[in-house]
Amino acid sequence: MHIKVLRCESCGTLDPGPRDLCAACQSDKLVLSEAPGAGALVSWTTIRRAPTRFKGQAPYVVAVVKLDAGLIITGRFSGTEENLRLDLPVEAVSEDEGAYTFAEKAS
């Protein structure tokens, strides 16, 4: 699936948002856009002690993903962290209140 991102109309920079001004050129012409949800795993951890809001969901895996489009996204990984490795190809599979969940990319 695609990921909702912000695109700067002035310089073309993509940003995971939310953001008021473009991080590269400080233009306020940021428009909602989409980027392909494919990328590579930067790192991960299993959260076993969660903050109040997510308490019922623990344990869960948080993943940092570098999208092929160049952006870094902090999201979830579907399932356990067994067999995860750095640079594992992943893709977004679902979204919940702005947070994306990734899974290993089907080969």
Binding site: P18, V42, W44, T45, I47, R49, V62, L86, G98, A99
Partner: peptide, 21 residues
């Protein structure tokens, strides 16, 4: 909390990410 926070990341979690790398 409008970006990293919504994933359920915590501060120990941030350092878990750093440790793996």
């Amino acid at each position: 909390n409008r970006s990293d926070g919504i994933s359920g990341l915590t501060f120990p979690g941030l350092f878990g990410l750093a440790w793996q790398i």
